[in-house]
């Protein structure tokens, strides 16, 4: 399955809608997109994971790397996720304390 990535804008936030499976094969594509956004000047980013069916540590590593990049530009990276199976991955790895995780894109962009 290909990883689908669409980028939009809500207020001052770049919103990255991700669909499919984020794993060792597809994670580099997400990493490239997030690096591109930051290098183009977007430092407040929302990553919408509602369309993600699978997430592994490679995908988590990409999100952590992106968080470090936006923080270096005094920006923010928030996530949108309500799926129990994906939230479980964030809880096990302790990343619920690292990322703001919201129920909707609007909430995330307003935070």
């Amino acid at each position: 399955m290909e990883l689908g990535i669409d980028v939009g804008k809500v207020g001052s936030h770049a919103v990255v809608d991700v669909k499919g499976e984020i794993d060792v094969y597809t994670a580099p594509k997400l990493r490239e997109k997030l690096i591109e956004l930051v290098s183009e000047g977007s430092s407040d980013i929302v990553v919408n994971l509602e369309g993600v069916d699978f997430l592994d540590s490679t995908g988590l590593g990409v999100l952590v790397g992106a968080l470090k990049r936006v923080k270096a530009h005094e920006g923010s990276l928030s996530l949108v996720c309500t799926q129990d199976k994906i939230l479980k991955i964030f809880k096990i790895t302790g990343l619920t304390k690292v990322f703001p995780i919201h129920d909707t894109v609007e909430d995330a962009a307003g935070s």
């Binding site: 490679t58 590593g61 990409v62």
Partner: peptide, 13 residues
Amino acid sequence: GVDSSGFDTRLVM
């Protein structure tokens, strides 16, 4: 495809 800090973090996760 994962930077060095991300890779170390990935192994822990």
